[in-house]
């Protein structure tokens, strides 16, 4: 923050310091971001290799140990059906990671395209895009999601598409409002007068300038998608048995929270670690790329 204020008084150095190196340095210096990155790394490793920590398969049922506390035999205990909680968190986390990342990929892409093109082209395209955004915001998307996922059952791929379909609007609005300010920039005008085609201006001059916003949107989108999935699964609409996600595990654990707290605590902890890591990374990226902006919205 202080950096930008100082630049009012001293000229930036005419050094050949590449942007990317500067960004990486700032990011690496951000303690929160590094913690977030390490957390994410740990979770990814856990989700891929965590199965090795336990001899049990996630769908195995150990009838000798029903609703057992964490012990040597089951490091995180077992659930009512004798399922190994550790094995299930591994699968559940993997499911949540996949859902979060793929949904956010799609929403970020859609929001960037819709937002940037709407802002740059203006006119009826812009009005149409904004109307669509507002319309989808007003439709209680959670309700439609519940409808869809209730109908199709536990198919998580459909869930991914449904979440993506209703998850891009707020981000798109952010991209749109930032692009409208870019639209007025001199270099955009200059490109127009040089005869650069419109679509190329968007791809070459507008989207690259939004990269920090897009990265932030992406990490926050992961969080939002995971939380939405959790909520749906908790209510019984999202991922359904026999499939397992952190959300469905929470639903199972919630009913017995006072008697078998480990059923709830472990998935909750993993969920929290995951969303936290994404937020910390988002903050780090934002600080590194764009020390001035707060507009680069959180919501």
């Amino acid at each position: 923050m202080a950096e930008t204020r100082v630049s009012k008084y001293i000229e930036p150095p005419h050094l050949r310091l590449s942007r990317n190196r500067l960004y990486r340095r700032r990011f690496a210096r951000n303690r929160g971001a590094m913690i977030g990155l390490m957390l994410l790394g740990f979770l990814v490793i856990y989700a891929t290799l965590g199965g090795l920590l336990t001899p049990w398969h996630w769908s195995d049922q150990d009838f000798l140990a029903l609703t057992e506390r964490p012990s040597g035999r089951h490091l995180m205990g077992t659930n009512q059906g004798g399922g190994d909680v550790l094995a299930q968190t591994v699968v559940g986390l993997r499911r949540s990671l996949m859902i979060g990342l793929s949904v956010s990929c799609m929403t970020t892409l859609i929001s960037a395209m819709v937002g940037a093109f709407a802002a740059y082209f203006g006119g009826w395209i812009e009005r149409l895009a904004l109307a669509l955004i507002h319309f989808l915001l007003i439709v209680p998307s959670f309700l439609v999601l519940a409808l869809v996922s209730n109908r199709v059952g536990g198919d998580w791929l459909v869930l991914v598409f449904a979440l993506a379909l209703f998850g891009w609007m707020i981000a798109a609005r952010g991209v749109w409002s930032m692009s409208t300010s870019l639209r007025e920039r001199d270099y955009i005008l200059a490109a127009e007068f040089m005869g650069v085609p419109k679509w190329r201006i968007v791809l070459r001059h507008i989207l690259p300038h939004l990269s920090s916003l897009l990265v932030v949107n992406f990490s926050l989108g992961v969080t939002a998608a995971v939380l939405a999935e959790t909520s749906l699964s908790f209510l019984g609409f999202g991922v359904k048995p026999p499939d397992v996600s952190l959300g469905s595990m929470l639903a199972d654990g919630a009913g017995v929270i006072s008697s078998a707290s480990w059923l709830f605590a472990f998935p909750a902890a993993f969920l929290l670690l995951f969303t936290m890591s994404m937020t910390l990374i988002a903050d780090g990226v934002r600080d590194a790329l764009d020390p001035v902006s707060a507009e680069a919205s959180r919501r």
Partner: peptide, 9 residues
């Protein structure tokens, strides 16, 4: 922390 907390939790 709270921002990332699922409502259920």
């Amino acid at each position: 922390l709270l921002y990332n907390m699922p409502v259920v939790v």
